[in-house]
Amino acid sequence: MSAELAVVYAALILEDDNVEITADKLQTLVAAAGVEVEPIWFSLYAKALAGQDLKALLLNVGAPGSGPAVAAGGAAAGAAADAPAAEEKVEEKEESDDDMGFGKF
């Protein structure tokens, strides 16, 4: 088992028990599992997961509309419809090979 995976599993165990995720608690769980992990991983994961709701993150992975566009409602849908038109305009302005002198050969 990789070190990162062991720390992630420990974080999921803590979240499932509604226990605050701290570096010390992560380290205790990983040590109890008998997995050797460098100490830096515990503090990195504890900082990254501080204030996050892991249950909500796990339940919404891959869910349609889980991105920020849903929060904006209809305005985001209108902006998304305008995006392809903006991309087409950018492509029209690009120079062709002939304009740069490559067509002479």
Score class of each variant (00 low, 15 high):
P39M: 09
T28Q: 10
A10R: 00
P39D: 15
A23S: 07
T28I: 00
G34W: 11
W41E: 02
E36W: 00
E36H: 10
A33T: 10
V37M: 07
A6Q: 12
P39N: 14
A33L: 10
L12N: 01
L26Y: 01
A11E: 03
V8N: 00
V19E: 14
E38M: 03
P39K: 14
A11T: 05
L12I: 07
E4M: 01
Y9T: 08
I13N: 05
Q27S: 15
V19I: 14
E36M: 04
A32T: 12
A32N: 14
D24W: 06
T28K: 09
V8P: 05
K25R: 06
V7Y: 02
D17C: 06
Y9W: 10
W41A: 05
K25G: 07
T28P: 00
V7T: 01
A31N: 15
A23W: 01
P39V: 14
L29P: 12
E15N: 03
I40H: 08
D17T: 01
E15Y: 00
V30I: 06
N18Y: 12
E38G: 07
D16E: 14
A32F: 13
P39T: 15
Q27M: 10
V8T: 02
V37Q: 12
L26I: 07
V35D: 13
A6E: 10
T22A: 02
T22S: 11
A10V: 04
E36I: 02
A32W: 11
V19N: 02
L5Y: 03
E36Y: 07
V35C: 12
I13P: 00
D17S: 04
A6I: 06
